[in-house]
């Protein structure tokens, strides 16, 4: 999100500040360690996770703009550090961690952010957000309050887009085939934008759509909610 999708992160900061919160950001290069973790290299993931944990320990709430990074911190850090000295810290940070849309809706109780986007959109549920964190309602509750926005659910909305982190590079043919199915479902809705709370899914989907020359555009949920 730092290098490739700064607009999403900037939108999150601006929304949280408008709601009166003081935002602190981890330093340059802070990565949750999910790429090595998901590939099985837990020993290589731990130093990265440890560095992030230390930076997050003072925060009242940790808000993450990605379902998969959110699942990493909230769900997998306790497993990654089970039986290690950082276990308690991992547990405590996990308990304070929220995915962005969940933080707004469930923690703050806010759904209307005064945004407007007169367009047809379809929403893609990132699998980690959907199945590891159980996020389904919050993004939709937020989109429902965006003026002019019409949400059209796509067929098989809960089917994976095929990104899957390093999987997308290790098994590109399978990843691409899955992505083609997803893009087909999104295109069928006639939407102008495909919105998600996960930038990595969007990178994959946008990559396929651009290559195919399709006009459908991807947007992070925070960008939609910051569209005033």
């Amino acid at each position: 999100m730092d290098a490739l999708f700064p607009r999403a992160a900037i939108s999150m900061v601006q929304i949280l500040e408008r709601l009166g919160h003081r935002v602190v950001c981890p330093r340059e290069g802070a990565c949750c360690g999910q790429p090595p973790f998901n590939s099985g290299y837990w020993a290589e993931a731990r130093p990265m996770a440890r560095q992030l944990l230390v930076q997050l320990q003072e925060a009242e709430a940790v808000v993450i703009g990605s379902g998969s990074c959110g699942a990493m911190v909230k769900k997998f850090y306790p497993e990654l550090f089970a039986g290690l000295p950082e276990a308690a810290l991992a547990q405590s940070v996990a308990e304070r961690t929220w995915e962005f849309s969940e933080f707004l809706v469930r923690k703050l109780g806010v759904t209307d952010l005064g945004a407007q986007l007169p367009a047809k959109v379809t929403f893609h549920d990132g699998c980690h957000g959907l199945r590891e964190l159980g996020i389904k309602h919050s993004p939709r509750a937020l989109l429902a309050k965006v003026r002019g926005l019409e949400l059209i659910e796509m067929k098989d909305a809960e089917t994976c887009c095929g990104f899957g982190g390093t999987f997308s590079a290790k098994f590109p043919a399978i990843s691409t085939a899955m992505g083609d199915v997803k893009c087909g479902s999104a295109l069928e809705t006639g939407a102008e934008y495909i919105v998600s709370n996960d930038s990595s899914c969007l990178m994959h989907i946008q990559g396929l759509l651009s290559r195919a020359g399709k006009p459908l555009k991807t947007l992070h949920l925070a960008e939609v909610l910051n569209h005033l």
Binding site: P6, V13, S168, A169, K170, P172, G179, Q206, G207, S210
Partner: peptide, 21 residues
């Protein structure tokens, strides 16, 4: 190539989030 054979890469903007921050 594993990525770009079938997919475009996103264009990286000059200003990153950390630059903005």
């Amino acid at each position: 190539q594993a990525w770009t054979k079938t997919r475009d890469l996103p264009a990286q903007p000059l200003e990153s989030f950390q630059d903005w921050w």
